[in-house]
Write a protein that binds this DNA or RNA. Sequence first.
DNA 1: TATTTGACCAAGA
DNA 2: ATCTTGGCCAAAT
Length: 106
Amino acid sequence: MRKKTPSFADRCYQMLKKVPRGKVTTYRHLAHALGSRAYRAVGQAMKRNPNAPRVPCHRVVRSDGTLGGYAGGVAKKKRLLTREGVRLRGDRLTELKRQLHTFGMR
DNA sequence: TATTTGACCAAGA
DNA sequence: ATCTTGGCCAAAT
């Protein structure tokens, strides 16, 4: 018996892997999908261990449709999203509701 | 153990 | 519509 309980951060990464290309989720939705309200902690997790290409952390945005942060710089996040077909107007998504991945939750 | 820190959020002014 | 404020939770200090 040696398995440790996965940290909250690890569960975030796992869950985030389910967000397909061209879609996004929010810090809040991600936390909610994990049965938690720790949306701030989600942000912390993304910042500290971006597990680089493994986890699409650029697909996590704020609930109000603005981008939020990115370890490699927000400009980069913008570019990645645009490249996947997510359209922006400045630092804000134009069609958040439409491209939101809700993890099968309503 | 206690305190501090955020890639946040909803509500108020 | 924008800006500020208080609260929230896990993890790092």
